Computed example of a mutant assay.
Amino acid sequence: MTIKFDLNDLQAFRAVAESGSFRRAAETIRITQPALSRRIDKLESALNVKLFERTTRQVSLTTVGRAFMPQVERMLDDLDLALMSIGDAGSSRMGTVTVACVPSAAYFFMPRAISGLHQRFPRIRIRLFDGSASHVSAAVASGDADFGVSFSGNLSPEVEFESLLQERYVIACRRDHPLARRKTVTWKEAYTHDYITLDKSSGNRLVLDRALADFTPDKPSICETRHVTTLIGLVEAGVGIAAVPSIAMPPDPHPLLAAVPLREPEVARNVGILKRRGRTLTPAALELEKLLRETRLDSAGD
């Protein structure tokens, strides 16, 4: 039996599956919506199956369509890899990259990398999942994310880690706070002031609890929160000071915030790329990973 469909039909299928819309899919692959519909009809007729459930409001994959999707992605990615080996296919490169990233690394690394990827390969789409370190590790281990950007420690056994940089923890405070004029401050000194901390669901809290196992503050925190970005917002509002990873701080100089390195002990964490063991990245994911490494090098030189 001969099945009559071609590469264009598979690209149309992937575009509709990823966008959930015939209109958006047609815009992505730059054809008219009727032409896109004809490609999908041709593919369904060739396979003698229904790949999409269509309503007036949404388009979703059928059970058969969901099973077919990974095979299509694999075929198109293999073709993209072959094209990369024989020439520059950047102008036509498509696909979607899903990256799981802790919020502080997302703030520091991702904007420049995503912007660079879009400029070089405008037809590649990026999904950015920002979550806790445990959620990032789980997304990479399960295959829900192509790769992740997080810090080492408590990773799933299926995940391997490659360091991009080491960063130290600093005290975030307002510029009108007494500690803002210091060049360094000890943990003991810092925690004599009103301070905010992260709750036990945070990966950063785990890093600090391990590093400061022998240190007990003289008084408890006045507030706990889950995310570093919320923590910094509370500092900016004047609620208290907080220990945060240095890359989470806004660029210096900031009109309201200052960062003071912490010592006794100096606490650092390794930030890097997480990959599932044995998984080969798609061409689109490889391009984004390359840009993240370039971002690390550029930042090191700043």
Score class of each variant (00 low, 15 high):
136 V>C: 14
2 T>A: 14
97 V>D: 02
83 L>K: 14
50 K>A: 07
162 E>A: 12
150 S>M: 07
96 T>V: 13
23 R>F: 06
101 C>S: 05
220 P>L: 03
287 E>Y: 04
158 E>A: 10
294 E>C: 08
270 N>V: 03
132 S>Y: 09
288 L>M: 03
120 R>Q: 12
237 A>H: 04
38 R>Y: 15
166 Q>P: 05
288 L>S: 05
291 L>I: 02
205 R>M: 03
117 L>T: 12
227 H>L: 12
292 L>V: 01
109 F>I: 00
266 E>L: 13
242 A>T: 04
134 S>C: 08
272 G>M: 00
236 E>W: 08
148 G>H: 05
268 A>P: 02
222 I>T: 14
218 D>G: 14
266 E>V: 11
263 R>V: 12
145 A>K: 04
287 E>G: 02
49 V>N: 09
53 E>H: 15
240 G>E: 00
123 R>C: 12
302 D>M: 13
269 R>W: 01
182 R>L: 08
184 T>N: 05
106 A>M: 07
136 V>P: 10
31 I>A: 10
230 T>M: 14
2 T>W: 12
250 P>E: 01
59 V>I: 08
138 A>P: 02
277 R>G: 03
43 L>R: 04
200 K>S: 15
258 A>K: 15
290 K>M: 11
124 I>S: 10
118 H>R: 10
38 R>A: 15
38 R>Q: 10
164 L>D: 01
118 H>P: 01
92 S>K: 15
75 M>N: 04
201 S>K: 07
33 Q>C: 03
129 F>D: 08
43 L>E: 04
93 R>C: 01
253 P>Q: 11
69 M>S: 12
39 R>E: 05
101 C>L: 03
138 A>R: 11
255 P>K: 00
288 L>D: 09
295 T>R: 03
75 M>I: 06
12 A>H: 06
170 V>W: 00
190 A>H: 04
180 A>D: 12
40 I>V: 14
87 G>S: 05
261 P>I: 01
213 A>L: 07
81 L>A: 13
291 L>Q: 02
104 S>L: 02
184 T>H: 04
62 T>E: 04
38 R>H: 13
121 F>G: 03
62 T>P: 11
4 K>E: 15
165 L>Y: 09
259 A>H: 03
86 I>N: 05
297 L>W: 07
278 G>P: 09
204 N>H: 15
217 P>E: 09
60 S>C: 03
82 A>G: 10
219 K>R: 12
265 P>V: 06
16 V>I: 07
198 L>A: 02
139 A>F: 04
143 G>W: 02
207 V>G: 10
173 C>T: 00
262 L>P: 00
283 P>C: 07
67 A>Y: 12
65 G>W: 02
100 A>Q: 02
68 F>Q: 04
163 S>G: 13
86 I>Y: 08
288 L>F: 09
249 M>Y: 02
267 V>R: 08
150 S>Q: 06
208 L>C: 00
190 A>Y: 07
287 E>P: 07
26 A>E: 15
30 R>K: 15
66 R>C: 08
124 I>E: 06
